[in-house]
Amino acid sequence: MSEFLQHLVNGVSVGTIYALIALGYTMVYGVLKLINFAHGDVYMVGAFAAFYIANALGVGDSPTLGKTLLVFTGSMAVCAGLGYAIERLAYRPLRERPRLTSLITAIGVSFLLEYGFQLAPFESITSMEFPPGPTPRFFPELFPRTVWLQIGEVAISNIDVLSLLVAIALMIGLEFIVYRTKFGTAMRAVSFDPQTAALMGIPVDRVISITFALGSALAAAAAVLVAISRPRIDPLMGMMPGLKAFVAAVFGGIGNVPGAMVGGIVLGLAEEFVAGYGVSSFRDAIAFAILIAVLLIRPQGLFGRQSVEKV
């Protein structure tokens, strides 16, 4: 029983991270019909941005709440800027071209971030150690880990609770933005039909830019949450979570905001339970098996709309 509970706790905590990343995929796909392959790497950049900010603030020596908040918002701001820049420079010029062109560009951007960050630091140019190089770095502790709740052998730490709460708060915030604000209405209109939306006076370009920034900020938040509980960060850390979060988004119905959240949690639980009770070395294959099954059985995902191809 306690083993089951432990897997449940782990699954939910991994799942919320997948969900936060999946939201970025789903929103971008919603407005642009593009799989933003580089999204997982924006997540990685988020972790490194937080790392540099935390070190600059000297969080390791004297952690305070204010600094923690600063690390969070700083990293989210950096990634929002990065997301905006990627969209502006790489995707916008290709918007009228075949979708495959944008996909290949997205793969290019993804590899550029992954391998660019693995280069040795240009110390002669900047005093900062940037790019970080291929060796993993250790994220400083923002606050000490304490056990919050002990049920039998299952320990739930303050970090688990905090990351769950932050993730839920961000999702509620996003839900509010998408369904209750003027911008959200514009975003849904663009997602439904960009041309008509433009005719109705919606600034489509700006909506797409903000969507990118929003999704990237969520990825950064996910990255900081992960870095707090598992402090090892490296330039390839976004590869697998990125792909898995994409699977979560497809599972929930790509383009669907609540679907991405459910998909993330389901994927986290599935991975944790199969790895816990079955063969742990197959962990990385589970997500892809789920993806293939979903696309074959219900390609529109759990909550997606069936789309009909018109000539």
């Binding site: 497809v250 294959a285 098996a289 293939i292």
Partner: peptide, 26 residues
Amino acid sequence: SLRLRGDYLAIVTLGFNEIIRVFIEN
């Protein structure tokens, strides 16, 4: 997978690539 189009096909073939690799590793 070839019933899928465009970007979905790309991701599924990538998925199969990784599944083949994970299986060989095991």
